[in-house]
């Protein structure tokens, strides 16, 4: 327990530093963009007839830091804003707080990508075990080959294909937007049913594109464990097949959890094509939009959010690992 607590403390400290570094970098990048967008904005407001003071105030609210004063003062202001989760306001969203805009978009990213990741993980693990155990049989070959083929097909090709088939040719599934506007958002059957229905194609796309990787990873992990001495030892001690199978599965799945946690960390930034094809107003689209529209506060906020989610996923992966792997728990090398 002490070891875990110490690890957690170390991670948190490192995480905070990293977030600060990323925030700092994004602050200075925005500040060093040619033409100084902040000064330009203030200037624009003044030209539109606003009093200089009011224009500066408005710009400050917009970008989350002051346009006047030295760079360091502005930076201090920006960091102070961060500490209160104030990332400024989005110009392209009628001045709504960036945090609010991000939160709204995040929910449309998390829903299909999380479901898709977990589903592809589950499917991949099961098929991977099967492919490993039956690796000399026909079905094992088919699984492994189809796994690597699908792993190589880009997500957007699969997405367009599914959308063309199931939303256009044989329109049995909705492929446009995350939910029917008919329904009152909330915890009611109609709304949730509509959410689920709309999620089928994006989730299927994600799963099809991703499960092949899990099949291959799980297969090779199981094959490695099958060759480990302790599996033969368990068999020679007359252990039941079901128990030996559990030994194999648990040891083989262990390294995959790290990959899973890391891919969950990438989840917030990683579904641009799916969001575009199925018209989900998620973070991927928002980020692209903020870049094309030069909405700097939103851009910085989105990068920060993606960074934070990766850092948090790393911390969780490590903590989770130390809970399920006794070698890590007691602070030893895994490879021992």
């Amino acid at each position: 327990m002490v070891v875990i607590a110490r690890r957690l403390a170390g991670h948190l400290a490192r995480g905070v530093v990293m977030i600060l570094v990323v925030a700092t970098i994004s602050f200075f990048i925005v500040r060093s963009i040619p033409g100084d967008p902040i000064a330009a904005h203030t200037q624009k407001l003044i030209e539109q007839g606003m009093a200089p003071e009011a224009a500066e105030q408005a710009t400050r609210v917009l970008y989350g830091f002051q346009a006047t004063g030295s760079l360091w003062e502005q930076y201090g202001d920006y960091v102070a804003g961060l500490l209160t989760f104030d990332l400024g306001q989005s110009v392209t969203h009628a001045g709504a707080p960036v945090t609010e805009v991000l939160g709204e978009a995040a929910k449309w990213t998390v829903l299909p990508v999380l479901a898709g990741t977990l589903l592809s993980f589950l499917v991949g693990i099961i098929l991977g075990v099967y492919a490993a155990v039956k690796r000399s049989g026909k079905l094992g070959d088919v699984l492994a080959v189809s796994g690597s083929l699908l792993h190589g097909v880009p997500q957007y090709v699969l997405g367009l294909l599914l959308s063309a088939i199931f939303a256009t040719l044989i329109p049995i599934l909705p492929g446009d937007g995350p939910v029917d506007i008919l329904y009152e958002p909330g915890f009611n059957a109609g709304y949730i049913g509509s959410l689920a229905e709309h999620a089928v194609l994006p989730v299927a796309t994600y799963t099809l594109a991703a499960y092949g990787g899990w099949v291959l990873a799980m297969k090779s992990s199981v094959v490695t464990v099958l060759g480990d001495d302790f599996i033969l030892a368990a068999e020679l001690r007359g252990m039941k097949r079901s128990i030996v199978f559990r030994y194999i599965a648990r040891n083989a799945i262990l390294p995959l959890f790290t990959i899973l946690a890391l891919s969950l960390g990438l989840l917030l930034g990683g579904a641009v094509f799916i969001e575009r094809i199925f018209n989900y107003p998620g973070l991927g689209l928002l980020l692209i939009e903020s870049i094309t529209m030069r909405d700097y506060a939103l851009m910085g906020g989105a990068f920060l959010l993606i960074t934070v989610s990766i850092i948090v996923a790393n911390i969780l992966a490590d903590l989770f690992y130390s809970v399920i792997d006794p070698r890590v728990r007691s602070g030893e090398e895994v490879s021992a």
Binding site: D228, D229, F230, A233, A234, E235, L236, R237, G238, M239, K240, R241, Y247, R250, N251, L254, I324, D325, P326, R327
Partner: peptide, 25 residues
Amino acid sequence: LRKARGKHIGYVFQAAQNSLNPLKT
């Protein structure tokens, strides 16, 4: 065969071999 192993015939592995499941006590 499974029941004969362990119950009637005990097998001891080479010392350096890892004959135990690393995840269980």
